[in-house]
């Protein structure tokens, strides 16, 4: 399976040099080729597995348990102002 490594890198926001792209492209393709073998298995009548553990989802009560930890949680942010995160301009 051929893979467009440039597109995958762009979607993942990873910058690649030409050398890296040339090296990673065939590697990714061969990994996908390996996984593709699963397509040969006859799965007719086999229910799809949603999760490796056959556990049902535990649910959370609708009760507020978290308070305001803004100061602590914003400490690692590169830049904040009046409690807001400051990021490079993004606009539609």
């Amino acid at each position: 399976m051929e893979i467009d490594v440039r597109k995958v890198a762009m979607l993942s926001r990873i910058r690649l040099t030409d050398d890296e792209a040339a090296e990673l492209g065939p590697q990714l393709s061969s990994i996908l080729g390996y996984v593709e073998q699963l397509g040969k298995v006859d799965t007719d009548g086999v229910p799809p597995t949603a999760h490796p553990h056959d556990a049902a989802m535990p649910l959370r009560a609708n009760v507020v348990t978290n308070g305001n930890r803004r100061e602590e949680l914003q400490a690692p942010a590169p830049k904040t102002e009046s409690g807001l995160y400051v990021v490079p301009k993004v606009i539609e």
Binding site: R60, V63, V64, T65, N66, N68, R69, R70, L84
Partner: peptide, 24 residues
């Protein structure tokens, strides 16, 4: 209209000071 967010125990109340209703 729940009291808390979908996947954590943070409040959903509208109009709070920015970033005061968040958690990891």
């Amino acid at each position: 209209n729940t009291d808390t967010k979908a996947f954590c125990g943070c409040s959903t109340e509208f109009g709070a000071e920015p970033n005061t209703q968040t958690c990891p």
